[in-house]
Nucleic acid binder design. Structure first.
Length: 154
DNA sequence: GTTCTGACA
DNA sequence: TGTCAGAA
């Protein structure tokens, strides 16, 4: 018997395993809503060659956070985007002054860094889905921790 | 049967 | 957010 999963790969919370239909049932939202969250840049599911989406356990954790924010805390999608946009990616990735000046993400207040192209900076080298700036905030609560760690005293 | 994209209510 | 169309 395989203890991990049906395809026998060593699995962890980052392994994309769940189809959009399964996730929709799990979170009690429509498939359409999950695609909306993706289009709005709230979540980045893995895409198979077939272009079908696969979600990991961490993606589901993230989606639960998003749902809780919207349903219980009355956040809008736009407000969640703004919150994500406040994550100091430039600090986490140690971007230079020059890189910051030329970076759309650094200068955006409305959109998370992972919604930009990143064709001409160090972010072009890594998939946002696997970047700490994105990954470390699957729990919405972690944003506060990040801000704490990046705040200097005057 | 499930999911994809795009469009419209 | 829901639903429908046409395709894979």
């Amino acid at each position: 018997m395989q203890s991990n999963n049906s395809i026998g790969l060593g699995t962890d919370k980052d392994t994309p395993l769940y189809t959009i239909g399964v996730v929709a049932q799990l979170l009690e939202v429509s498939v359409h809503t999950l695609r909306l969250y993706e289009n709005e840049g709230l979540v980045i599911p893995f895409k198979k060659d077939s272009n079908h989406r696969l979600y990991s356990a961490n993606d589901i954790t993230r989606l639960k956070c998003i749902r809780d924010s919207i349903t219980n805390k009355k956040f809008s999608i736009a407000s969640i985007k703004t919150l994500y946009a406040m994550i100091p990616c430039w600090s986490i990735r140690n971007c230079s002054e020059g890189e910051r000046e030329n970076c759309e993400a650094y200068n955006s207040t409305m959109n998370p860094c992972w919604t930009f192209k990143h064709s001409n900076n160090l972010c072009a080298l890594q998939e946002c889905r696997t970047c700490d700036v994105y990954k470390e905030h699957n729990h919405c609560d972690n944003i506060k921790e990040t801000i704490k760690n990046n705040t200097r005293q005057a």
